[in-house]
């Protein structure tokens, strides 16, 4: 009896699997391994030497005694906490506002707030360069309003909150649309009849928001919070631009992720071993939060069942 075979799933998965293997798994192992070697200046021959936990020792030493590195830690904490608040609460407020107002205006605002997400990093950086640098928009407006008497270099001179505010502001603008959109579609997904019933029962807008919309979208709130927390810990492209272009002071604009990048690729230091050690810490946190996200997202439901046996 002939036993015909349908193309196995492997055929469909092969390309993606290959790329994931070469560009995720192997690099990850390399990075983890590099943190145990003395590799510097991309002299990859040094990957053959083993130095044990030396790099981790150096790293913790730097955190404790190098004021710049401890500033990086502080910046990371402030940045993540601040931007997370902006992203979640701001996203919630935007979604609520977009949900309440009339459809066309809502659409306009949703698109407008989505714009930063779709803008190339270099352009977005440029926008805020024009905005924040001493001769830029912000100072011009403040001077007009006589709130300041001479231009202020907010990102460089007003430490630490000047640069911290700027990085939170810029990343907040990019990140807030995520929450906005998730919450907005969650509100939309609540059956209209529930709103109607509540309205008939005499509920006012406040009641709708606090007794119906927010309780029913509780899981979305938790999910967005965890997911954004993870994203903020690992994002660095916008920060890279702001720091490199001098919009913000180097150490007060640098989070842990950017510190990893600058340590590995920066023009001053080129210490891949140290960078890898710092990256490994990030990986551990990332995996933890990633597993948490998986539990939160109702994975089994998302997975869906396979029907038929073909």
């Amino acid at each position: 009896m002939p036993r015909p075979r349908l193309p196995p799933p492997a055929l469909f998965l092969s390309l993606a699997a290959f790329l994931v293997l070469v560009f995720y798994m192997v690099p990850l192992i390399l990075t983890l391994w590099a943190s145990l070697t003395p590799v510097r200046n991309w002299d990859i021959a040094q990957l053959r030497q083993f130095v044990g936990a030396e790099n981790y020792r150096r790293l913790f030493h730097l955190i404790r005694f190098d004021p710049d590195v401890s500033t990086v830690v502080k910046t990371t904490i402030v940045f993540v906490a601040g931007t997370l608040t902006v992203n979640v609460l701001g996203g919630l407020l935007l979604a609520l506002a977009a949900f309440i107002i009339e459809e066309r205006a809502s659409l306009g605002f949703r698109l407008l707030w989505f714009l930063p997400r779709m803008t190339p990093v270099a352009v977005f950086g440029l926008l805020w360069y024009y905005f924040f640098y001493p001769q830029g928009t912000l100072n011009a407006i403040l001077l007009k309003l006589h709130l300041i008497s001479h231009p202020v270099n907010w990102g460089q001179d007003v430490l630490p909150w000047g640069p911290w505010s700027i990085i939170i502001f810029v990343n907040g603008l990019v990140g807030v649309s995520y929450g906005m959109i998730i919450f907005y579609s969650a509100f939309k997904a609540i059956p209209k009849d529930i709103y109607r019933a509540a309205l008939v029962d005499g509920a006012r807008l406040r009641d709708l928001v606090f007794r119906i919309m927010l309780p029913l979208t509780r899981w979305h709130l938790i999910f967005v919070t965890v997911w954004q927390l993870l994203s903020l810990l690992t994002t660095y492209a916008h920060l890279f631009v702001l720091v490199e272009w001098g919009v913000v002071e180097k150490w007060h604009g640098m989070t842990w992720a950017l510190y990893v990048f600058e340590t590995a690729f920066g023009s001053a230091v080129n210490d891949q071993a140290l960078a890898s050690a710092a990256a490994t810490l990030l990986v551990v946190v990332g995996i933890g939060l990633g597993l948490l996200t998986l539990r939160l997202m109702g994975f089994e439901r998302e997975l869906g069942a396979i029907r038929g046996e073909l």
């Binding site: 009896m1 036993r3 015909p4 349908l6 038929g308 046996e309 073909l310």
Partner: peptide, 29 residues
Amino acid sequence: LYLIAGIYKPSRGEILFDGEDVSRLPPNK
């Protein structure tokens, strides 16, 4: 019906077309 069409495979037993066992044949065959 899906068992006869081959969309499902029987957990046990067999399906015959003119006496020939087709239980393992995919629907397109």
